[in-house]
Design a protein around this nucleic acid. Structure first.
Lengths: 151, 151
DNA sequence: TATTAAATTATAATTATTTTAAATATCTAC
DNA sequence: GTAGATATTTAAAATAATTATAATTTAATA
């Protein structure tokens, strides 16, 4: 954890941004809840536990900054709020998501399943791919099981 | 065009929804601008030309309804507004998008590039895929050309 | 063509996010 | 260690997107 904070501190400094206590608290929340997909409001409430004086606008600004630096990815699952997802260390690509339309759970897929597809896009459409967003909507394992039970 | 409106009318009636002039005007705008990715506001302004008395809330409700009936797909490119994209007739899957980070243009890919990937997700993650959202971010053909020129 | 449930209008309310200006704090260089 | 320049935060207000409300109107059916 401390190691990752140090790294982020360096990333900020290299662009002459400062690591303020508010920013550090925000990053810590993101690290602690790495598996989740928190909205700005969610992050705000959690950061408030560490740094009660922080304002919501600061959280928004911090998340925006981390997003620019590619430390977090901003995603939207269509529910009206932006969510922020920490990039895995050393990950070349943004990971994919499985959103269950029954229970709303969100699972992550680390494997890069799009290598071939990106090659095709590059070759056949002449589009120089930099990043992607891939989300599947469907029924998760758990909900499939429950559906069988109740049938 | 008239044929597609008729079909949509039947789809509405089959769920006991009415095809009001406002809804028809909205659908016509979507048909006329099939290649675009209009926001609710965009649609509203265009519909107003045909039906000046329409309210923005009605446009939102209509788009929401069309979305439920799978006549349009609601997408979000991360710019804070939802966009509405007419489903191609007979398309089994939602098409993909290429968003240029330089000029903001959005290109559509009709081909289903995810068949294999969906099989893998189904098999290895036990996730029953119903739909997907795939967007690539990068540099479009035109912007690549201009970049070469200015270098 | 009268009926009835569904839909629309206009307005207000919510929710998410961003901006502003004044006050404060971080990091660098000394 | 500390001053100073600059970045950052705070708090509040503004903006933007979307949804809800209640009264009025209208589309489709019999």
């Amino acid at each position: 954890m401390e190691h990752r904070i140090e790294r982020i501190k360096k990333q900020l400094h290299s662009q002459s941004y400062k690591l303020t206590p508010q920013r550090e608290a925000t990053v810590r929340v993101l690290l602690e809840r790495e598996e989740d997909h928190l909205s700005a409001e969610d992050v705000y409430l959690l950061v408030k536990e560490k740094a009660p004086e922080i304002g919501l606008a600061t959280v928004y600004r911090t998340l925006e900054l981390l997003s620019e630096l590619k430390i977090v990815d901003k995603i939207n699952f269509g529910d009206g709020v932006s969510r922020y997802d920490l990039r895995k260390e050393g990950a070349k690509h943004f990971h994919h998501h499985l959103v269950c339309v029954e229970c709303g759970s969100v699972e992550e897929i680390e494997n890069d399943l799009l290598e071939d597809v990106e090659k095709i896009v590059q070759r056949d459409w002449g589009f120089q791919v930099q990043d992607h967003r891939l989300t599947f909507h469907g029924i998760c394992k758990q909900c499939q099981k429950s559906a069988v039970k109740t049938t």
